[in-house]
Design a binder for these strands. Structure first.
Lengths: 349, 349
DNA sequence: TGTTAGCACTCTCCTTAATCGAGTGCTAAA
DNA sequence: TTTAGCACTCGATTAAGGAGAGTGCTAACA
């Protein structure tokens, strides 16, 4: 799609229409525009310009004799050319939020807290993905005895994610065996990239282990399952905040649309697809049709990457109608992603 | 409220009206009734009976010249007198579900799996509360070293709930100290009822500990916080399944109602209040106004208790409109609560 | 040549009115 | 006690008629 250079009056008019539409959610006419924004030209002139902007693809007309609404291309131009992406629109907020959340040390708590925070700030639905496992290292693996034939397997990554699973056996293990097992697994698995702890590697470890010590094969199989399940690439959990905010958007006052959207947000895999289809850039905006997932082609996403000690590990963002308050949302996502990075880096120490 | 004994024809008519209303969701007239159910009397007779049933409070009329709909009292009579509460309406399902979920060993996974299962079976929203902490004993407490000044505290109850928290210190602890700490905490805390591990007891333990070994006070405070947070009475998590099913109910085709309901289901405390306001009986049904929570006085609940080794630990149930398919829902809740008890008893060893 | 006023035209939205139909309550007869 | 008949009620649906906002076009103007 061509991106023409617009003259300054067209820019002003386009900007005015978008800003007005973001507020009112309805088509904007030339008269309204002339009244509310002092563009120093008559409605008739504005009409001509609007017709031009429509020809260029920046505006759309729902029907003859209605005002214009911005097209995806119009929003794209607005986001790229007409607003400044300044951080920190609300001064002092960083310190406040950081203080508010500073005693949270559990990574999951931090993530879901930031999801809530972001949705409260923007009044759109927020989504945050867990730190992805591929780039994490296993920091600690340990087996604890709970009862005679019941163990607890604890896995901790250097991104602060803790995974645990109770394992029931049909035999009991001696304390000596358990401590041997711990030493062995610790040596073989800790400090390795999770991406490398795949099935072939685990099979090797299993073989070596069974050669050295007499253990039920069943036990290892359960470890194995836990590894697969806990850290599979697609299985990153996505936290949501403010799901019910979508109900407040006028574009969702059709019950069918609400239903579709809520069903979508219920599907973890879909959320994964949505948030992972965003490329690696620092702050990415996807407007309407630009989205790959079919069901959100009438939505916009504003997504930032967050970091643990300078390593990109996850995404945090906002989903809402294309008619989104981009400036406010962008600066919020920007700020909150920074805070998230700080908190989570600290917590995973 | 009086409960009269109804003659058999009134019973038949009331039952027919309720069953028809459950299907159609709209007021039922005498003509429809005479046609669909062979009651061997004319519409006029049915009209008289309906007028009687209305006087007795079992039916309501939305407006003159509309059919009748059941009142809460009508549903109550239906549930108590007109349907048989037979378990196991769908034979074979128990085995199927048990097989399907038998490799789940994580209590949380089992709970959320059962919530999904129940909602799929009933097409209403399902809710399951975590095993409550008051009746659980602490089975295992253990501190693991993750890094120089970072520890992981793991708490396991005999109900299979696992809680963990990363604790960052400003000093590092020697291995010896950690193992002493583990032994000490193990002695003092394990096998105690969580209800007894309250702040006064913890303070005592702290005092004793500090007398014996040189430790930062800060460390114990963090343990303390974790205990409070992890097992406070009101803080039992409630798992939901099939939230979007409420959108399919015609009584919720008003956007305002949907909004209210979804907001309600977003509030954990509210869910707690709802599910904990159900008394201890095995399978309890709350119809409309019978509910204590204001916002669900147009809903019905069907809630059962589930058990871990014969100890009542949590609730599992369904929430839907008062016009609910009680027979199907009751047997589903019944069956699934049994399965949940079995799975969770097995998993928590 | 760009800008503006004027005007006929279009299309949605809201209100009002008319009609339909399901259902009731009452009366009187079987 | 039951039933047929009938007038009546009231919500839901459809139709019609503005009102209002906005457009595009034409012609005049600077």
């Amino acid at each position: 799609m061509m991106v023409e250079e617009l003259d300054s009056r067209k820019k002003r008019i386009l900007q005015a229409i978008i800003q007005e539409h973001i507020i009112s959610a309805s088509p904007i006419g030339s008269r309204t525009l002339a009244k509310k924004y002092n563009l120093d030209v008559s409605p008739a002139t504005i009409r001509n310009e609007m017709a031009d902007l429509e020809d260029l693809g920046y505006l759309e007309q729902p029907h003859t004799s209605a005002g214009r609404i911005p097209s995806d291309k119009g929003y794209r131009y607005y986001v790229d050319q007409l607003i400044s992406r300044k951080k920190n629109e609300v001064p002092g907020i960083i310190e406040n939020v950081e203080n508010l959340y500073q005693d949270l040390q559990d990574v999951q708590d931090i993530i879901s807290g930031m999801a809530k925070m972001l949705s409260n700030m923007t009044h759109y639905t927020a989504m945050v993905s867990e730190p992805k496992s591929q780039v994490s290292r296993l920091k600690k693996v340990e087996i604890m005895q709970l009862a005679d034939n019941s163990l607890l397997l604890v896995l901790v990554t250097d991104t602060g994610m803790v995974n645990n699973k109770i394992i029931n056996l049909d035999q009991s293990l001696s304390t000596a065996k358990i401590s041997y097992l711990n030493k062995f697994l610790s040596e073989k698995l800790e400090n390795k990239l999770l991406a490398n702890l795949d099935s072939s590697y685990l099979k090797e470890v299993e073989k070596e282990l069974l050669a050295r010590v007499d253990l039920s094969v069943d036990l290892f199989k359960q470890f194995y399952n836990e590894f697969e399940g806990a850290f599979e690439p697609g299985g990153v959990k996505v936290y949501l905040g403010g799901t019910s905010y979508i109900l407040e958007q006028p574009e969702f006052n059709d019950l069918e649309k609400v239903k579709k959207m809520l069903k979508l947000l219920d599907q973890e895999e879909m959320l994964n697809k949505i948030i992972n289809s965003i490329s690696g850039s620092d702050l990415e905006i996807k407007i309407g049709q630009e989205n790959e997932v079919e069901d959100i082609k009438n939505c916009s996403l504003v997504v930032a990457t967050y970091y643990i000690s300078e390593r990109a590990v996850g995404k945090i963002g906002v989903i809402g109608p294309t008619r989104m308050e981009y400036p406010r949302v962008i600066s919020s996502v920007d700020v909150i992603s920074d805070i998230l990075s700080k908190l989570i880096s600290k917590a995973s120490g």
